[in-house]
């Protein structure tokens, strides 16, 4: 059965989606990714969708699910490289992907993850009483 490969880079997981996802493939990815986050204690998940030309409400929901599930496991999710046409279509469809962080490309996404995790660690070391939302 087809699977989308998940790469590990330090404390981050990197997924590059190169094919059009059909439902089962997307659901498998969701399950695999959550397992991997748990197993590797990853702090961040980076999903590159620059090669994806269509994101419908189902796909959008999977991405949202991955972000929420990773969040519970203490990992941030960044989606990078969304095509302009896909972004406009998602907005018109009524799916703004709330709670998912985005960046223009993998490099900027990595930088974003690092600052987010860095901030968190700084907060922890300062033992600040305020909990980040």
């Amino acid at each position: 059965m087809d699977r989308i490969p998940i790469l590990r880079m330090g404390s981050f997981l990197l997924v590059t989606i190169q094919v059009d996802l059909y439902d089962r493939l997307a659901l498998t990815l969701e399950a695999d990714l959550v397992q991997m986050v748990n197993k590797t204690q990853a702090k961040g998940v980076l999903i590159d969708i620059s090669a994806v030309s269509i994101v419908d409400s189902f796909m959008g929901r999977i991405v949202g699910n991955i972000a929420s599930m990773s969040k519970i496991l203490d990992a941030e999710t960044v989606v990078v490289g969304m095509q302009p046409a896909v972004a406009i279509t998602l907005i018109e469809l009524g799916l703004p992907l709330k709670g998912v962080h985005t960046a223009l490309d993998v490099e900027k996404g990595m930088a974003l993850l690092k600052t987010m995790i860095g901030d968190e660690e700084a907060d922890e070391s300062e033992e600040d009483d305020s909990v980040a939302e």
Binding site: A87, T102, D105
Partner: peptide, 12 residues
């Protein structure tokens, strides 16, 4: 608003 939301989805 749509333009701004779409820009954000792309990460800008």
């Amino acid at each position: 608003i749509k333009t701004v939301s779409a820009t954000r989805l792309m990460g800008a």
